[in-house]
């Protein structure tokens, strides 16, 4: 399909205007994080750029600790989800046994229960396990995920069943087949799910707010809230510097994995 120059121009104008409007808040935060407080308060354009805000943010708050915690939590959740979801998806695709369909409905049913609706007893469970302010308390409740299982199930289904049969004839057991064939072949979808899992874990808010009471395992999202509420009222530059630090890892991940993520999410959602 070819397009006339006039039509092209219209599209470029629309694309550009939309991009400016959508990206304005992020851009603004980025610029503000390098501005002096003086400039921000007078509402002028930046007269000079400075790294003071970042220095202040790191000095006054244990941002490194928060970032480290967030990395640990996100990576643990990501790995946990990949392991559990791929195991479950394998069972739903490659194993035949009594009760499989029933269990599949159980997985579907989990999508009908919002975590927020069960958060009170969850908090009590974590508290009774003495898991408040621990990494396991922040991560383990999120390892099992129906959406991830379905996403991988769709991808595993595309693996020809003859591969399994050839392995059966060769005398290879299920677990080895899962490890040496299914996981490598479905690498792309595992990456997709991994990126998705990391993004959502990094951005988690309500649960870390409840499950942490001090800085030992507190994640960067809650740290940002602390920063925002504790910082004396008008030091916006420092707050924005904190916010930029929070979003940089996920933005990088998103930019790298956008195509895969888009394809993966559409597949998992719709087929």
């Amino acid at each position: 399909m070819t397009m006339g120059t006039g039509k092209k121009l219209i599209f470029y104008i629309l694309l550009t205007i939309s991009a400016i409007i959508l990206f304005a808040p992020t851009l603004m935060a980025l610029v503000m994080s390098f501005m002096s407080n003086q400039d921000i308060l007078t509402g002028s354009l930046p007269t000079s750029l400075t790294l003071d805000n970042y220095k202040n943010a790191f000095e006054r708050f244990p941002l490194f600790q928060y970032l480290f915690n967030s990395f640990v939590v996100s990576i643990l959740i990501m790995i946990g989800q990949l392991v559990l979801c791929s195991l479950a998806a394998y069972a739903f695709v490659f194993l035949e046994f009594k009760g499989r369909d029933l269990l599949f409905y159980v997985f579907i049913a989990t999508m009908m229960i919002p975590f927020e609706a069960s958060i009170i007893p969850n908090f009590h469970i974590i508290r009774d396990l003495n898991w408040i302010d621990t990494y396991q308390g922040l991560t383990i409740p999120f390892f099992a995920m129906a959406f991830g299982t379905f996403l991988l199930r769709q991808n595993f289904k595309m693996i020809p069943k003859e591969l399994k049969e050839a392995s059966q004839i060769a005398g290879m057991g299920d677990f080895r087949f899962y490890l040496t064939v299914v996981l490598p072949v479905a690498k792309t979808s595992l990456v997709t799910l991994g990126v998705y899992g990391f993004l959502t874990s990094w951005n988690m808010y309500l649960w870390p707010l409840l499950a942490t009471t001090n800085d030992s395992v507190r994640t960067v999202q809650i740290g940002l809230k602390q920063l925002q509420t504790q910082e004396q009222l008008n030091d916006w530059g420092v707050i924005m510097a904190g916010a930029v630090i929070v979003i940089i890892p996920t933005l990088i991940l998103l930019f790298l994995g956008q195509k895969k993520l888009q394809r993966g999410l559409t597949e998992g959602a719709l087929k």
Binding site: F23, N203, Y205, I239, M240, V246, L251, L254
Partner: peptide, 19 residues
Amino acid sequence: FRTIYSSSMGISVAAASVF
């Protein structure tokens, strides 16, 4: 442009709220 449009997916609730 696609990257720009999808960018808010990488921005957490906390950061977006601060913005």
